[in-house]
Design a protein around this nucleic acid. Structure first.
Length: 197
DNA sequence: AGCGTGATCTTT
DNA sequence: AAGATCACGCTG
């Protein structure tokens, strides 16, 4: 399947969060190793009206990438340990992104196992901090494009509505009632968190 | 259920 | 300059 291009990402975060499920996130390492993961869990963040979003009060140095053109990576560091991977959505100058919360490993598992120090496949990328560690993604990747270079997202057949679950987002305190999490129902690589509500 | 860990943002 | 917060993961 072909790589997803800019127009795919230039849409509302909430819509993109659902449409990214099932797509294949790919990183090609300098030595040629290909890391592939099927996206199974996402969350939408929006600059306007979403107090959980970094950009809800406007632009800062950290969140500036959320205002950039769609299809770039927004990667930030938090809790002293973890990098978070987001895909920039919405038109340029409109803040928005989709957090990638979990993936199902499809290629490059040996590298991921070393990064994560485990061989349990459902533990390699079943959380937002886990998957960045598995793919060696950190702040140096902030701003990279999905249309050139080492990262891209490959298309995959659209999921059926009934395969997609919805819930409130995990680990936030503000705007916690917005149902902006999406996941593939029953997929064992979805992070441990709530399954509904 | 508790805590490590450090950048970022807000308040003083 | 100091304090609060944090889109988490691991241990127990």
């Amino acid at each position: 399947m072909p790589r997803l291009e800019k127009q795919f990402f230039e849409r509302p975060s909430i819509e993109l969060a659902g449409m990214l499920l099932g797509k294949i996130f790919i990183r090609r390492l300098p030595d040629g190793t290909e890391l592939r993961g099927r996206i199974v869990e996402t969350e939408a963040y929006l600059g306007i009206g979403d107090e959980a979003c970094h950009a809800w009060r406007g632009r800062t140095e950290r969140n500036s990438m959320m205002f950039a053109e769609p299809g770039r990576l927004y990667v930030y560091f938090t809790y002293g340990n973890h990098s978070m991977l987001n895909i920039v959505s919405e038109p340029e100058h409109t803040a928005g992104a989709v957090l990638i919360r979990a993936m199902e490993p499809l290629a490059g598992e040996p590298f991921m196992q070393m990064q994560r120090n485990t061989t349990i496949v459902t533990d390699l990328m079943s959380g937002p901090g886990k998957l960045t560690r598995a793919m060696a993604i950190d702040r140096s990747c902030n701003g990279l494009s999905l249309f050139e270079g080492e990262f891209c997202i490959e298309d995959a057949p659209a999921l059926q509505e009934k395969e997609i679950g919805t819930s409130t987002r995990i680990g936030i305190t503000r705007s916690r009632d917005l149902p902006w999490r999406r996941f593939i129902i029953g997929n064992p690589h979805v992070s441990r968190g709530k399954v509904s509500g």
